[in-house]
Amino acid sequence: MSGNYRGKHVLQNGRNILLWAVGAAAVLALIMTVVFSIRAGGTPQGPGGQSSEPPMGTSSSEIDSAISSMGSSSGSAQPPPDVAVDPPEAVPYDFSQPVPQREAVENGYFDDAAFVGDSRTDGLMLYSGIGTGRNLTSNGLSIFKLAEKKALKIDGKKYTLLEALALEEYGKVYLSLGVNELGIHNDKGFYNSYCAAIDEIRKVQPNAVIYIQGLIPLNEQQIEEYNGNKYNLTNEHLRVYNDLMRQAAEEKQVVYLDLYTEFADENGALPEGVSRDGVHLVKDACKRWLEYLKTHTVEFDELYPDGLPGAAEPDISTEDGSVQG
């Protein structure tokens, strides 16, 4: 009996030791878990024990950047030298949207700019106070005639505006045409002509930012009073042209300036006092136009960080077919 009792006692003691050991192990594991969590950064646990997600709108690059900065601030979490860290990818420019507003540039920004347009643009150059930039304008010019009308005389020789544009190198080209052809209902032709004009401008000015300026609205009542609106200029068709110009800008990967929204009143028209004939802008409005241009700029490298889309490789072959090194 005693032996049995003793045997039972020994057995009971062994069970107690085992229970203590298991309990101690569990406590130790819990302590280690807590300590590990704290040392690893202590990601707070959400309700139900799930990790909290990053806030909406936080991009993976922002998270990567935040992690990177955390590591560098501690000074102790340097990545191993054999681990390559990819630089954050640049967000491609969205050519479907108008140029967003940003801090105003000085007038000197336009020192290397060419302004291609009609009499409205001529007004901008004369009355806005811009004081710089190349005035390549022609009264009554339309996009349909841009490539053929010999509108400028330089040193006694006549040039089309595109030919004149090719005579010097520019960093920016501002294009504004469309009002004089509002009475011509050839929308497909208008779109194709705009695309062709952009191609031509890019051909002669490959390093320039090309700005397509949406048409500033009209005051149809003033036009009616001034000349009976004999050319049938309407804001309805102007909006169609603006949409086509925006599409052309996206198609050709150039930027679009939404001047229509800047100037239109609640009825989509040019307000009273901005023009005397419903088309051409008075001096104060030209200044406002310039201010818009100064606060809506974009750099070439932002648009084309990897070079122009579809840009041909430079031709380095010679006439005899050999290739220069």
Partner: peptide, 8 residues
Amino acid sequence: AVLRSAGA
């Protein structure tokens, strides 16, 4: 002194 039409 110069005065000029805005385009009309």
